[in-house]
Amino acid sequence: MTPESLQWSTNALEELYQYLDKKNTKAFIILKNGRIAIEYYFDGFSANNPWYWASAGKTLTATAAGIAQDEGLIDINHKVSDYLGTGWTSAPLEKENLIQIKHLLSMTSGLDDSTGDNVSPENLQYVADAGTRWAYHNVYVLIQDLLEQASGQEWSTYFNSKIKNRIGMTGTWTELNNLSVYWSNARSMARFGLMIASEGKWDTDQIVPKSYVQEAVNTSQQLNLSYGYLWWLNGKASFRLPQSQMQFNGTLIPEAPLDMFCALGKNDQKIYIVPSKDLVIIRLGEVAEGENFALSNFDNELWKKINAVIP
């Protein structure tokens, strides 16, 4: 598609490109009705260049967990110890056994979020009972380990066979600061977004159960209404942010459509999905302003520019 055929504002589109360039963007894509309407690259970047997803890639792990559950390999309502054995944290055993896979998916493990990214047992300290405290924590990455245990395959092998190869993505997992980070080109990120926007379906192939996708992109607990299973949700009455126990009233990104949900990665890696407008929007690049872990002021300002383009 073209912006002109969709009757989008081409004048506002030029302003959008200038803003994206100013904010250190490498790649920007808008899919409308499953087709590329806008695809733009900056600073010598191209459609073939890979870039890191950062925490936007958390959603890849959440999606793989849904597939594994459908295959009967795991049950997200079972405790993590069923798959990793006891002693995977430094919490007392009775507290560790409260932590289910669902708590890792919803950021409610109750483990200390102030000890850094290291997910070795000595660094996973008890703070509160699972399900009683929301805190953004990279302990979610242990879902990859338990999927290895449950499937008998390396994480990347399982991911490639169940998601990457089935929807034609490129990309690789790399270790960065003790975390598994995904790198791909922008179109691969758009493919993943499109599959989620289609409620887990790719062409005629149901990659992820529709019911699981619906569960993942809706409020997963009552502590942070704006969080699903590693997905951020717009349009809720309140939200919490990484490295804080404060609750903020209002919607996550006021300028974005209320039904929008998104994958947000460190330093402004973005997947926005808007069901009501059949939009998937991708942004990859350097940090737009100050370093951030998920949400930033850039999100709201970017949506002001997008709204000027799309009626």
Rank of each mutant, 00 (worst) to 15 (best):
residue 302 L to S: 06
residue 164 K to A: 09
residue 288 A to W: 11
residue 38 I to R: 15
residue 146 L to K: 06
residue 79 K to N: 13
residue 175 E to S: 12
residue 305 K to P: 03
residue 272 Y to E: 00
residue 221 Q to L: 05
residue 238 S to E: 15
residue 280 V to M: 15
residue 253 I to K: 14
residue 28 F to P: 02
residue 288 A to N: 09
residue 103 H to C: 04
residue 73 L to C: 03
residue 54 A to K: 09
residue 274 V to E: 02
residue 260 M to F: 00
residue 58 K to D: 03
residue 49 N to Y: 06
residue 138 N to W: 03
residue 164 K to E: 05
residue 143 I to L: 15
residue 174 T to C: 00
residue 77 N to P: 08
residue 62 A to Y: 05
residue 1 M to K: 11
residue 93 L to P: 04
residue 59 T to D: 06
residue 103 H to K: 08
residue 6 L to E: 14
residue 168 G to R: 06
residue 109 S to V: 02
residue 103 H to Q: 12
residue 173 W to E: 13
residue 210 K to G: 03
residue 144 Q to N: 11
residue 163 I to Y: 12
residue 173 W to S: 11
residue 251 T to M: 12
residue 276 S to R: 08
residue 248 F to E: 08
residue 147 L to S: 08
residue 161 S to M: 04
residue 291 E to G: 02
residue 270 K to E: 07
residue 68 A to L: 11
residue 154 E to I: 00
residue 110 G to M: 11
residue 228 G to A: 12
residue 14 E to D: 10
residue 261 F to A: 05
residue 241 L to W: 03
residue 307 N to C: 06
residue 99 I to K: 13
residue 122 E to A: 06
residue 171 G to Y: 04
residue 25 T to Y: 11
residue 271 I to V: 14
residue 241 L to Y: 06
residue 195 M to N: 14
residue 12 A to S: 10
residue 180 S to A: 06
residue 160 N to H: 08
residue 97 N to P: 06
residue 22 K to R: 09
residue 302 L to V: 02
residue 127 V to E: 15
residue 178 N to E: 13
residue 288 A to K: 07
residue 222 Q to E: 10
residue 168 G to H: 04
residue 197 A to Y: 15
residue 291 E to K: 04
residue 109 S to W: 13
residue 67 I to S: 14
residue 87 G to Y: 03
residue 209 P to H: 07
residue 205 D to K: 01
residue 120 S to T: 04
residue 211 S to E: 15
residue 231 W to T: 00
residue 282 I to G: 15
residue 68 A to E: 14
residue 116 G to I: 00
residue 226 S to Q: 13
residue 197 A to P: 15
residue 247 Q to K: 12
residue 61 T to D: 07
residue 160 N to L: 01
residue 113 D to M: 00
residue 75 D to H: 12
residue 303 W to L: 07
residue 311 P to A: 06
residue 135 A to G: 14
residue 61 T to I: 08
residue 43 D to C: 05
residue 93 L to R: 07
residue 145 D to W: 12
residue 137 H to K: 12
residue 106 S to I: 02
residue 213 V to D: 15
residue 290 G to N: 11
residue 131 G to W: 10
residue 289 E to L: 03
residue 158 Y to A: 04
residue 84 L to W: 08
residue 259 D to T: 05
residue 106 S to W: 07
